[in-house]
Design a protein around this nucleic acid. Structure first.
Length: 436
RNA sequence: GGAGGCGUGGCUGAGUGGUUGAAGGCAACAGUCUUGAAAACUGUCAUUGGGGAAACUCAAUCGUGAGUUCGAAUCUCACCGCCUCCGCCA
């Protein structure tokens, strides 16, 4: 949610920003409603003030006749007050509905575009591997090696589920161990920041395994409930299965005032992610690219407003660092206004090369959401001056396991159908070199 | 799931219908004293919204929401959370 004051002071900019994000909003109506809200609020506060004052008089006054008279008077005032409060309530409901529709404003460097065609590649790394055979897609290799079984999963659970088996499971755990080593190591993070010339405290990430379900009102405060069709809802308990660890790690500090000296706060959550994938029927139906359930490591960080852009650069730098260690070619994409998420101020995607498909596919996404989530979560920071302000939040995929595994399988595939294990992961797999 | 208890400011802890946004203590901050520190003493110490150039002022907030009342931290109801005991269980 944006600040109503900010909206009032920058209404052209907000209208324009929403338009760029392809969200239709009626700013004039919102401001008219806000005027009405303030007028009604003032009337109510004046009435309350009168009631408070007279009530104190009643308490102090000794004359019983006067008391009775004043109480009678207050009864009628209260009637009036009640009506006005009712009216204000409906005004606020209408007001809030529009407020919730307004997206975060895009950063100045965000390219303007209608959809993913407007995204801009800002850099790339790595040589695409060459093969002296036709490279296969991950599921062909996986099925043959007996490490991916969608067929059985379809019978048991339906489409978009899978059984990962054998060495692929071990590879996933190797990846997890490899990544946790990076994210919790201060020296490594310091080196990354230094290399990329990012001036930021390289404080390590705190690993978290968060709840996999959240209450619906919490989802709303995170600004992540929409699109609802993509969430699994547990009707009896009015809870949702999380679509990302972000959804239950982000609210960890709601209603809190953090201290400036504790900033930044960095978490790396590990959880399954549940997605109904509504609206993607027929898309990416093969293999494990688009599943109803997959495991993910997700970064979620809280920082001072003036550092949040650097923080995002840092999160992206860490992703690039480990992709380079895995020797996976990738490109970094600045996501355009029409393709970015509603809470995003600036979104950077990392797309990793998938030789089987002969295309870069999104493996990581990094969202700088500024104070869009913290405003409703009410997560603040007390500055050393004593003033409090909303913290800025960043979230980013550390690794969507399935997709990183696909990239490994396809880039490391051999002519004989085996898959070479990336060197940095071997120590977590008993020193072995191949999955056969 | 059954029975009972409890939710007050950064922490602790008073407060059961009337100027109580809330005593006392701790912590924190500023000052006096001191060569410096500690101790002692003095003072300042919640958040949000409205009005105002400012001093200041009005409203709201004692888990959340609704209700009773002229007036609610205090009474009623619902919800949320925590604790204890019993049951069940990975």
């Amino acid at each position: 949610m944006l600040d109503i004051k900010f909206i009032r002071e920058n209404k052209e900019m907000v209208q324009e920003g929403a338009k760029k994000k392809r969200v239709e909003i009626d700013i004039e109506k919102l401001i008219a409603l806000d005027d009405q809200r303030l007028v009604e609020l003032k009337e109510i506060e004046d009435l309350r003030s009168e009631v408070n004052k007279v009530s104190n008089d009643i308490a102090r006054d000794q004359d019983p006749n006067l008391k009775i008279q004043l109480i009678e008077e207050m009864r009628t005032v209260k009637e009036d007050l009640k009506n006005k409060e009712e009216k204000l309530k409906t005004t606020i409901e209408e007001w809030q509905k529009i407020m919730l529709e307004i997206p975060n404003m895009p950063s100045a460097d965000t390219p303007v575009g209608p959809d993913e065609s407007g995204n801009v590649v800002i850099r790339n790394w790595g040589e695409k591997p060459t093969f002296d055979f036709t490279p296969k897609e991950h599921y062909e290799i996986g099925e043959k090696l007996g490490i991916i079984d969608n067929k059985t999963a379809a019978e048991v659970s339906g489409a978009r589920f899978t059984y990962l088996k054998g060495d692929l499971v071990l590879l996933q755990f190797a990846l997890i161990n490899f990544l946790f080593e990076i994210f919790t190591n201060k020296e490594t993070l310091e080196k990354i920041a230094k290399e990329k010339n990012i001036n930021i405290d390289p404080k390590p990430f705190v690993p978290v395994i968060p709840p996999f379900m959240v209450k619906s009102n919490i989802y709303l405060r995170m600004g992540r409930l929409d699109p609802k069709e993509d969430k699994y809802h547990l009707a009896e308990d009015d809870m949702y299965l999380i679509g990302s660890a972000e959804h239950s790690v982000g609210p960890m500090h709601m209603g809190q005032i953090l201290e400036e000296k504790d900033m930044p706060i960095r978490y790396i959550g590990y959880s399954p992610a549940f997605r109904r994938e509504a609206g993607s029927y027929g898309k990416d139906t093969k293999g494990i690219l688009r599943m109803h359930q997959f495991e993910k490591m997700e970064m979620e960080t809280f920082c001072l407003p003036e550092n949040s852009l650097q923080e995002q650069e840092f999160l992206v730098a860490i992703i690039e660092y480990y992709l380079q260690l895995l020797k996976l070619p990738y490109q970094v994409v600045l996501v355009c206004t029409g393709d970015m998420g509603k809470p995003d101020y600036r979104q950077i995607d990392i797309e990793t090369w998938m030789p089987g498909q002969n295309v870069y596919r999104e493996t990581n996404t990094s969202d700088l959401v500024t104070s869009f989530q913290s405003r409703r979560l009410n997560t603040k920071v007390r500055r050393s001056t004593g003033k409090t302000e909303l913290v800025h939040m960043n979230d980013a995929t550390a690794s969507a396991m399935g997709r990183t595994l696909i990239a490994i399988i396809e880039n490391y595939q051999q002519a004989d159908g085996s898959v070479m294990i990336p060197e940095v992961l071997r120590k977590f797999m008993g020193g072995r070199e191949f999955i056969k």
